[in-house]
Design a protein around this nucleic acid. Sequence first.
DNA 1: ACGGTTTTTGACCAATTGAGCGTTTATTTT
DNA 2: AAAATAAACGCTCAATTGGTCAAAAACCGT
Lengths: 249, 249
Amino acid sequence: MLTEERKQRILTDIEHNGTVHIRDLTVQLAASESTIRRDLGELAKEGLLRRVHGGAQKISSLRDEPGVQEKATAHTTAKASIARCAAEMVQNGDLIFLDAGTTTAQMVPLLQGKDVTVVTTGVDNASLLADYGVKTIMLGGTIKPLTKAIIGAAATQQLAQYRFNSAFIGANSVHIDYGCTTPDPEEAATKRVAIGQSAASFILADASKFGNVSFAQIAPLASTTIITDDFAAIDSEFTKLDNIKEATF
Amino acid sequence: MLTEERKQRILTDIEHNGTVHIRDLTVQLAASESTIRRDLGELAKEGLLRRVHGGAQKISSLRDEPGVQEKATAHTTAKASIARCAAEMVQNGDLIFLDAGTTTAQMVPLLQGKDVTVVTTGVDNASLLADYGVKTIMLGGTIKPLTKAIIGAAATQQLAQYRFNSAFIGANSVHIDYGCTTPDPEEAATKRVAIGQSAASFILADASKFGNVSFAQIAPLASTTIITDDFAAIDSEFTKLDNIKEATF
DNA sequence: ACGGTTTTTGACCAATTGAGCGTTTATTTT
DNA sequence: AAAATAAACGCTCAATTGGTCAAAAACCGT
């Protein structure tokens, strides 16, 4: 990773989120704390961002949006390392499906510069992808207000037109018997179709999701690869499976 | 491998990826580090790329691009009053089409609480609409990176399924002979279809857009209602038309 | 084979990086 | 509010990597 490349990605990040955390950057950019600190220091000297304790923030933004901000900070490091592990599954030339959600959103910066085409149901993810210059196709349909995901019959119909090399799916709960589940049946249906259209599919779920059950099943445990962050925090009934990966960064 | 051939491939690479690494180039071009360095040095001297430690990068990337940020701050007050005038055209129960763009985005807060369903091609507008709790349907298709608008055949096909009470369209230029125009033919096509599917259609254009011409026509002047902000700043050949409205707030 | 160019090689210097460590700042506990 | 704990900071340093330069070798069309 080139120094300048790193700095640009930091700037893109900061442009989009308002703030960046050093801890996250070390994961996203695969660099040491020292390096990130140096980068931030130099960028701050250039007046391109403002250095603050633990990270940096946009230079002129007077008001921060606490709404998304807060949600994004929950389990960020876990999500970032899961995303990094997932992004390593992506190859140049791939056509991939990216689910809506904050975990999958973390993958977006890691796709920058790669020659991939991404199909997504997440409105915000689509916007992010466009910012990062990734070729993006958005599915059409009704927007679910809370998660800003496209759902419904129209979306699943469009999905059927595509074949993906891999699908990256977020899940609310992972249970040993009931598999991967999520509260909204319509969202579950969309995810299920996406998995069906993919040669390989990955469920992204941090340790806090394990052992719970939500209403609608996305997929049984065995049919996908699960990527998570911390084996130590998960019951061994999961960790002994062979289709579960621990992200180690 | 000829020198010029090498340089050409370096430039193609950089154009495509934004950055190149010397280590990668030595492999791809089967040349030594020194050779690549010399090539890069010469190309840099010609101003065709910027040399950085470990490689090179595209000359004018993210760093100095004006981006959406600047465009959004320009003419905000004008856009706000235009949007307010446009929003008054919306009735409860309507199904409306909302174009992508910063002007139409200003309408979103004004739709809050109304019983309308909005169909949009703008990714950011869709996100905004969802935030404001407006029933939203997003068209699917390829995302145009710069404007984050959905374009292409898939989008126009979906549009054909809907009939709108009104369509609110942004335009780059309004000319007395050439009508409303915009630079991208694909975007123009989408807007045109939306207008065709609407009982009433409104072009939102602030005073600075008048008198110019862009490449692709959206609609002739007579076929829509034009909403603008300041009659005083516009040539009288426009203001005497009967399908132009001045937003006064 | 010859003159000019391109490429390789090796030596030396500069830049970048990641880890360690004592200090400062923030957060939690008492 | 004060103390204890945990993060984050800035600093130095060794190691790696990239950069420059010049001489030698290989290449090319004539």
